[in-house]
Amino acid sequence: MNRKRFLTYAFLAKYYFGHHLGRLLPSRRKPGGGLDKFLENYRADRIQALTPEERAALPDMQSCVSCGLCTSSCVLTAPPGNLTETPPIDPRAVAVSYSRAIPEFWSLRGVVERCKGCGLCEEVCPTDTPLLRMVRFIDDKSRESAPA
């Protein structure tokens, strides 16, 4: 083993054991230290933590193929008057929103706030997209993430 390689392994070993031994000691976290600095860096991006249950539910929410059948059955898009509502209501916009980052969910607030939860959209959905669950999820997450 040459000298360079030896030093490299020694360096890695020092941090490997140092890190794990350090974790056994009581927390020495200083306010304004590493984690806080880390979170502070991302605060502007409004990124928030998901619970394990929320994370487990994400794949179900990704089944929308944007066929539009929900839009044509939604009571909120039913005439008269729906076309001129602001912002426009469209369950499909909710269903395809998995492709957006959670910090962008606030743009759907106008839609999810008016959802009556009748479930007609889910009834016609060919791909079993859990639209009502998505509405609740978006409602939840967008409350926290809306820009000031």
């Binding site: 898009t77 729906n82 912002p87 426009p88």
Partner: peptide, 10 residues
């Protein structure tokens, strides 16, 4: 008309 476009079904 609706902002942001409409589908034929609407």
């Amino acid at each position: 008309r609706k902002q942001g476009g409409m589908t034929p079904a609407e």
